[in-house]
Design a binder for these strands. Sequence first.
DNA 1: GCCAACGTTGGC
DNA 2: GCCAACGTTGGC
Length: 134
Amino acid sequence: MNYFLVKSEPFKYSWEKFNIDGRTFWDGVRNYQARNTLRDMKEGDLVLFYHSNEDKAVMGIAKVVEESYQDPTTTDPNWLVVDLVPLESLKNPVTLAQIKAEEMLKDIHLVRQGRLSVMPLKPEEFDKIVAMGS
DNA sequence: GCCAACGTTGGC
DNA sequence: GCCAACGTTGGC
């Protein structure tokens, strides 16, 4: 079981919209490092859903239900998507400021490499953020 | 709205 | 293959 974090701008695709949809394919990744991470996602892996810009907070937990396949929004074979379903909302969204303030979380990609839109998390980092949000 | 970080592109 | 220029992202 692996753990990840994905980012979305809330006005583009929000956690609320994701919950209404019930399932989505994670498209629009146009960065090789992020693509490689998508490729590593396996069915059943857990993914934190982060809102950039307005909220700057982790909103909830999603689950990978379909491993990577060709991005249906392009014919360019370089790009992939995975299918995600929402699992649960965090009671208290965990803000970027809170994450930065945590000693064990200050080195995660979200902080160190802010522009990356899909990134791996260590199990203990995932657990920590979920615990902070409960 | 500004700016820093950083990935990508293209000229040489 | 290097590196400057440029574009994009995202925090502030």
